[in-house]
Nucleic acid binder design. Sequence first.
DNA 1: TACCCGTTTCCTGGTT
DNA 2: CAACCAGGAAACGGGT
Length: 286
Amino acid sequence: MVLHSGCSMSASTIPASVSAENQLPASWSPHYNCPDVSMMTSGYAGRLWSQDLHPQYWSKYQVWEWLQQMLDMHQIDATAIPFNNFDLDGRQLCSMTYQDFTRLTGSFGPILYQSLTDLSQSKWTGQYGSSADMFTSGDIKTELDADLPCTILSFKEEPSFYATSELFDIKTPFQPSTMMTSPAPSSPDPRGTHLWEFIRDILLNPERNPGLIKWEDRSEGVFRFLKSEAVAQLWGKKKNNSSMTYEKLSRAMRYYYKREILERVDGRRLVYKFGRNARGWRETEK
DNA sequence: TACCCGTTTCCTGGTT
DNA sequence: CAACCAGGAAACGGGT
């Protein structure tokens, strides 16, 4: 396909990979090719949330819808968010602290927090009492630097990726009855997660990444394998290939140089750098 | 069915 | 010497 590098590439950035593919129904696929945008109760392309409700009054479904839209907007893979830990309604969501967000979603936390703050402030300031006030006066810049206490929510579980050696296989089914019914059959298959996305998604889950890969220079996209064989095993597991090795994985990585998904980092063992064609790894993507 | 893409597998040779 | 790195070549599996 001629359009492959454009459409398909970015599309494959969004679909759930690793953990999320076990959680998200097909209808949570990216918005590209989405045959029926109107099925989304919120106007996707238009105003953010057609449900004229302060976030505090969102249903659980609306919370998820917001999360999904955040993923789409920021071109971030669904694995950045442990959806099963967001089984919350709007009130619970609004009671989350900045720290809660970063704890649950790592580098994506600030984006979520900012978004929720904006939504709470935009047209609801002063209208909805205390819970909303938390955000109306929330100075993100200040709070980013502050070491806020992690108060609120007691999440049922924060599944450790290593808990069962099933690193990314969070089994929690994700089939809310309120989910929209359109199957979006023409959407790209989320199973097509590529190696570089798999690597990226490990990096984007620092709180759950048990030291497999580490950022060397976050802003430059430089990272280093700490446990090369463990990552290879994990990749093999995902591909149902028990004979995967770092030797083979690294060969695939080297193919990315030509496509500028990765850039060479000379002289440093196990160090790679995302290239211009790698998407979704930046802290604030566009 | 043919073809493309993204690996996977294997390999030779070089480097740390 | 082990562990990596660089790529060529060919095979493979899924998708179109």
